[in-house]
């Protein structure tokens, strides 16, 4: 019996073989190739200079600006998500499918078009300023600034923060909250001592899903930054499309990857295994 069982298990592992081949071919191999490009020059000689490019003043400026956008957008997403999830909980909008529906549906309108729509809303003679003028409020001048990039980023990635936090909070056992309330805890105490700690795995997934793409996006900054404000994503894209320097572009990509991995290691250190499901 035992033998039969281990037989099943070992045969079941074989099911993963196509995937293992896939990972080797399409996850590991591309990484090896990009690292190879990053550490060689056009002649094929070994060099650190591509990686070092990230420290040149102009690139460093782009990195700092990307960090500023990424950190502020991630924080804004967190601050917008918790009240939303709590409100959904409060109103009993607990239907998982319903909330998934509301949050994912916007993705069915092409994201570049949606960002272009934000450009129409935020531009100096755009829709927002038109509405403000009805109330005789002075027009906002946020077109082509970091603020408008941030609005686009927050808009685009908000669902990726809300969904994991929502999943984590909806999984909390209602009895815990009832017990705390019976023992005299107020709403704030319940939130700080029960809901927030238990939602941490969801929060961490959310941070990972929002921070990395918001740091490296180049389309949003292209459109909402008016082409003048450069994120590190824009710099890398131009190395490949206009400058045609693949080694430099790869060097910057690998530097970015190392940076992201380091910052993620700090964020996910507490992320215990067994909760992989938290994203959806």
């Amino acid at each position: 019996m035992n033998e039969a069982k281990s037989n099943f298990t070992s045969r079941r592992i074989l099911l993963a073989s196509p995937y293992i081949v896939w990972v080797a071919g399409f996850t590991i191999l591309p990484l090896i190739i990009i690292i190879h490009y990053a550490f060689t020059d056009a002649g094929g000689a070994f060099t650190f200079s591509n990686l070092g490019l990230i420290f040149s003043p102009i690139h460093l400026k782009a990195v700092m600006f990307s960090l500023e956008i990424a950190i502020s957008s991630t924080v804004a997403c967190i601050l917008l998500s918790y009240p939303m999830v709590m409100a959904m909980r409060h109103l009993g909008l607990g239907k998982r499918t319903f909330s998934l529906f509301i949050l994912i549906l916007p993705m069915w309108m092409n994201f570049i078009l949606r960002i272009l729509a934000w450009q129409m809303i935020l531009s100096n003679n755009g829709i927002l300023n038109m509405i403000l003028s009805w109330f005789s409020i002075a027009p906002l001048k946020i077109a082509n600034t970091g603020t408008s990039i941030m609005i686009g980023v927050v808009y685009d990635y908000l669902p990726y923060m809300m969904l994991p936090i929502y999943t984590a909070i909806m999984d909390i056992n209602e009895d815990l909250i009832e017990a705390a309330r019976d023992l005299g805890a107020g709403s704030l105490t319940i939130f700080l001592k029960i809901i927030l700690p238990l939602s941490l795995p969801g929060l961490l997934s959310g941070i990972v899903m929002v921070f990395v793409p918001s740091m490296t996006s180049f389309v949003i900054s292209d459109i909402l930054g008016g082409g003048k404000l450069q994120l590190i994503g824009n710099v890398i894209e131009q190395e490949f499309t206009t400058a045609n320097n693949w080694h430099a572009g790869s060097g910057l990509s690998v530097a970015l990857m190392i940076f992201v991995l380091i910052s993620m290691a700090f964020t996910t250190k507490e992320h215990k295994e067994g909760r992989e499901s938290v994203i959806w």
């Binding site: 990972v23 399409f26 996850t27 590991i28 191999l29 591309p30 990484l31 190739i33 990009i34 490009y37 990972v208 899903m209 990395v212 793409p213 740091m215 490296t216 180049f218 994503g233 890398i236 894209e237 490949f240 693949w246 572009g249 790869s250 990509s253 970015l256 990857m257 992201v260 991995l261 993620m264």
Partner: peptide
């Protein structure tokens, strides 16, 4: 290994695959 494509920035994934 499964998490790599999700953690990596899209631009890095795209470029790495393109170079391949």
């Amino acid at each position: 290994l499964t998490n790599i494509p999700m953690l990596n920035a899209d631009i890095v994934t795209g470029i790495a695959l393109m170079l391949w």
